[in-house]
């Protein structure tokens, strides 16, 4: 990013930095700065989806098709308008018609697709040829060899058995179910670790952004021409921490009811 930027772009960057710090302030507690960011994101997200869905779907899938003379699209238009009968207590039941059609279509679509992607294709992926004579090809930790495939097959079947509750988990059945829960726990642990690291990546990204904002504002010895907006930078930081300090003093020893 070019550290020397137009005032307009710099002010937007400063606003983004303010919102980043305001959101981070939730780590202290729920406070007015966080509430500003929270309420702003609700409104902006809703507005964003209105625009995206209008230009991305409604315009192309309804308005343009009606202009082209495809009058069959009057049916979803009428059904859509019927959804709005929910505004009336007396007529709210009419909105069940479009909901029913929506649910019918979505369910009818979902059944074969889910069966194919989540069941058939998963079973198909497990049906691999095992090379018994060369089970550990490429080493124990090679996840493409037959040993890995065998572990995946045994683990998946054992985990499925763990979820089968119509038979008591005792004897050999209980033993297989135990292997299943061990597999599941290792999988959950791995997924958890992966999620944590994804969040850490986002955190690093936000800290890097704040650092970039600092460089743009205050300047860096390595970046020529930066550092024109030191006053704004200091003002924002003093403002944010001042407001948090004020909130701390204002709410000290008070309950939520006192503050209402």
């Amino acid at each position: 990013m070019n550290p020397v930027m137009e005032l307009g772009d710099y002010l937007w960057m400063t606003f983004a930095a303010f919102l980043t710090l305001a959101t981070f302030s939730f780590l202290y507690k729920d406070n007015p700065l966080y509430k500003i960011a929270e309420h702003l994101v609700v409104g902006v997200s809703a507005g964003y989806f209105v625009i995206i869905l209008y230009y991305g779907s409604l315009k192309t899938q309804l308005v343009e098709k009606l202009y082209d003379g495809q009058m069959v699209y009057l049916i979803p238009l009428i059904l859509g308008v019927l959804m709005w009968t929910r505004f009336s207590k007396k007529l709210a039941w009419v909105s069940r018609y479009p909901i029913a059609i929506y649910i019918g279509i979505a369910t009818g679509l979902a059944i074969p697709l889910e069966m194919q992607t989540k069941v058939t294709e998963q079973l198909q992926a497990m049906m691999v040829e095992l090379h018994w004579g060369n089970l550990f090809d490429g080493g124990l930790l090679n996840y493409t060899n037959s040993f890995a495939s065998l572990i995946i097959i045994i683990g998946s079947l054992a985990a499925l058995i763990y979820f089968y509750f119509s038979k008591e988990h005792k004897g050999w059945f209980g033993g297989v179910a135990t292997v299943g829960i061990w597999t599941l726990m290792l999988g959950f642990g791995a997924s958890f670790g992966f999620t944590v690291m994804a969040r850490i990546s986002l955190l690093i990204n936000r800290v890097q952004f704040l650092d970039q904002w600092r460089i743009t504002s205050v300047g860096s010895a390595h970046q020529e021409g930066s550092g024109s907006y030191t006053a704004v930078y200091i003002l924002i930081l003093v403002g944010i921490f001042g407001l948090l300090a004020f909130d701390l003093i204002r709410t000290k020893g008070k309950t939520d009811t006192d503050l209402t």
Partner: peptide
């Protein structure tokens, strides 16, 4: 790629 995939596959099914 191995136990995690096995667990995920069972859950997906």
């Amino acid at each position: 790629n191995v136990p995690n995939l096995a667990a995920k596959r069972a859950i997906w099914m």
